[in-house]
């Protein structure tokens, strides 16, 4: 069944006495769906992503991908981290190559082609031979995005990947990301604090409560806008209204303590 692609099945996460993901967290993600996590800082979004990535395990319950319990990381789930996202000893191109280093199915020529394609997409083609220490924070973030896209995972876990980018670059990459998602049928979980970005990108927005993370609301954006996204959409009445609705939900959920 399509709706069983990625399933959070009754999970909980505690760090010692600290409850980070509330008991019995359930969520089902369809293949090729774009999910955006929206919630107050420190509520447990990164923790949830790490568990999907296989970098951490739930205290209880399980996360399944295509019926298989996720226990450790693998190439099918790529991740863009919030910090230390590129290797300082590799050039920009080397960092992107690293995403494909363990893919045995691609020829070197194919890898080089993919690398150049994604470097170009994130606007770093001119800096291919530069080391990350010579780049700005936003540029380093783009390295990580290119590396993760080049790796070609089915599920992309992106933790505030556009946080340090300027508005122009951000819009460009948002559109590209939607395009990639449609073309290569990727499933994406994306964390952001920017409500407008959430509404623009998401098929479905999951609004969280304060820690411990609980689902406050799920907003079905795809039901309103469908799969196609254009920049004009941003100026429409519907977009405005939806954005304000979500903003209200975020405010409300941040205030509620259950």
């Amino acid at each position: 069944m399509a709706s069983d692609y990625l399933v959070f099945d009754g999970i909980t996460k505690n760090f010692g006495d600290l409850s980070v993901v509330a008991p019995v967290f359930d969520l089902s993600v369809k293949r090729n769906e774009f999910i955006v996590f929206l919630g107050p800082s420190g509520c447990g979004k990164t923790t949830l992503m790490r568990m999907v990535g296989g970098l951490d395990t739930p205290s209880d319950g399980e996360i399944r991908m295509e019926g298989e319990v996720i226990e450790k990381p693998d190439l099918r789930r790529g991740m863009v981290f919030q910090s230390y996202s590129s290797f300082p000893w590799l050039t920009v191109a080397g960092n992107v190559d690293f995403g494909m280093k363990y893919r045995l199915d691609l020829t070197p020529a194919k890898k080089a082609q993919r690398r150049d394609h994604y470097l170009d997409m994130v606007g770093l083609a001119d800096f291919a031979d530069t080391f990350p220490n010579k780049l700005s924070g936003g540029m380093r973030q783009r390295i990580a995005i290119a590396r993760t896209l080049a790796a070609g995972s089915e599920i992309l876990l992106m933790d505030e990947p556009f946080g340090a980018l300027d508005a122009q670059r951000r819009e460009g990459l948002q559109l590209e990301l939607r395009k990639i998602q449609a073309q290569d049928s990727k499933t994406i979980i994306f964390v952001t604090h920017d409500v407008e970005e959430a509404v623009f990108l998401a098929d479905k927005i999951v609004v969280f409560t304060k820690r411990p993370a609980r689902i406050a609301e799920i907003v079905d954006v795809a039901a309103v806008f469908g799969k196609e996204r254009t920049l004009e959409m941003r100026d429409s009445e519907t977009f405005f209204k939806l954005r304000n609705d979500v903003l209200r939900m975020v405010r409300k959920s941040a205030g509620t303590i259950q």
Partner: peptide, 27 residues
């Protein structure tokens, strides 16, 4: 060595020994 480096390597499919020699040692 930042844990993030180890995790980047693991999520792009490196086996533990590869994580150690290609990333952790290099870092």
């Amino acid at each position: 060595v930042p844990q993030e480096y180890i995790e980047i390597a693991r999520t792009v499919g490196a086996r533990p020994i590869q994580v150690l020699s290609h990333v952790a040692f290099r870092a």
